[in-house]
């Protein structure tokens, strides 16, 4: 049996379907631009207040707006493939450049929040699954209910009121307050200090979700026949729970981590706005204020790209954990 061939093949298939999805996002963008009321140039360039007729004519030519619709799609796709997501008039910069400068902070925020939520959530879920009527278990239930019901931006504001205003422990907003003269370590510490509240806000929502998921999944697994087998073999409690049960209970968590990434980005847009975190989210918020359509469309496309990449990564991880996928 050649072990790697099926994996490679299915990864290739996955990548093909990712490309298809991204293509669909672009086509959708294009359709929206044309279906929207007003001049498509406005949608591509943003608020046209400052645009001269010459510029507009030039843009029409660039985007092929004087040609038939199907050719316009081709021009649009061709531009994107060359890394041209349009031009933001407000910033007077290519959208790609704008986005590139904002990715870092967003990725930092999202990964910190999501990984903490998954790790802490799994631990909470695993412990509460073993004692279903304990205080911890009730805490998980209440937490997940509250986390599902509270608007994430409001949680952020409440945390600011408590932990920045009433008890000034953390900064209210921004990503750093250093003036560029501090050492690298000092800068990192400063960023970490600023990161706590936004990451906590975003993380709480997903902590609520993952602790409940881990609890449900663990309860289900603990009732499985193979857990009875493991106990009948005389294995220690630790081995039964952490070796035999946890490895199986983690599977749905990995699946959801991939599926939910799009929503995590959505959450990040709101949280970044609350904390003025200089990432893609605040850029999106600003582009709404300025009716900067090309930037918003670019962020949408780029976020979709992040989601599919994340999907691919969780898929690969899943293959490593669950041997049933490899061969079937």
């Amino acid at each position: 049996m050649v072990k790697s061939a099926p994996v490679v093949k299915s990864v290739l298939r996955k990548i093909a379907s990712i490309l298809l999805l991204l293509l669909a996002v672009l086509v959708l963008n294009f359709v929206l631009i044309y279906a929207a009321p007003g001049d498509p140039v406005e949608a591509l360039v943003g608020e046209m207040g400052g645009a001269t007729p010459e510029l507009i004519a030039e843009l029409r030519a660039t985007y092929g707006l004087d040609r038939p619709l199907w050719q316009q799609i081709g021009v649009y796709l061709g531009n994107v493939v060359q890394g041209n997501l349009g031009h933001s008039l407000y910033y007077d910069q290519p959208v790609t450049t704008l986005i590139a400068s904002r990715i870092g902070p967003t990725l930092l925020l999202i990964t910190t929040a999501l990984f903490s939520a998954i790790i802490v959530g799994t631990i909470l879920g695993v412990f509460s699954a073993q004692r279903r009527n304990s205080t911890l278990s009730h805490f998980v239930t209440v937490l997940s209910l509250a986390g599902f019901s509270a608007p994430v931006f409001w949680i952020g504001i409440m945390l600011i009121l408590i932990l920045s205003v009433s008890f000034p422990i953390f900064p209210i907003s921004g990503m750093s307050s250093s003036d560029g003269t501090t050492s690298t370590l000092g800068y990192a510490m400063d960023v970490a200090h600023h990161l706590v509240l936004p990451a906590l806000t975003l993380g709480l929502i997903y902590l609520a979700f993952y602790s409940r998921l881990a609890r449900t999944s663990m309860i289900e697994v603990l009732e499985a026949d193979y857990i009875r087998t493991a106990r009948a073999k005389g294995l220690s409690r630790r081995s039964v729970v952490y070796k035999h049960a946890l490895r199986n209970a983690i599977l749905p968590i990995v699946t959801f981590a991939g599926l939910q990434f799009g929503q995590v980005i959505s959450g990040a847009v709101l949280v970044e706005t609350v904390f003025a975190w200089p990432g893609l989210g605040t850029l999106a918020f600003d582009s709404i204020l300025r009716r900067d359509t090309p930037t918003l469309l670019g962020i949408l496309f780029f976020s979709s790209l992040m989601v599919v990449v994340m999907n691919l990564l969780t898929d690969l991880l899943y293959r490593r954990i669950d041997p049933r996928i490899k061969t079937s």
Binding site: D225, Y226, R228, T229, A230, A232, G234, D322, P323, R324
Partner: peptide
Amino acid sequence: RQIRGNDISMVFQEPMTSLNPVY
């Protein structure tokens, strides 16, 4: 725990679900 699997052991009814799928 010392007795289970060592002095007394058991074969269950459902071989399809009694083995852990991930090991």
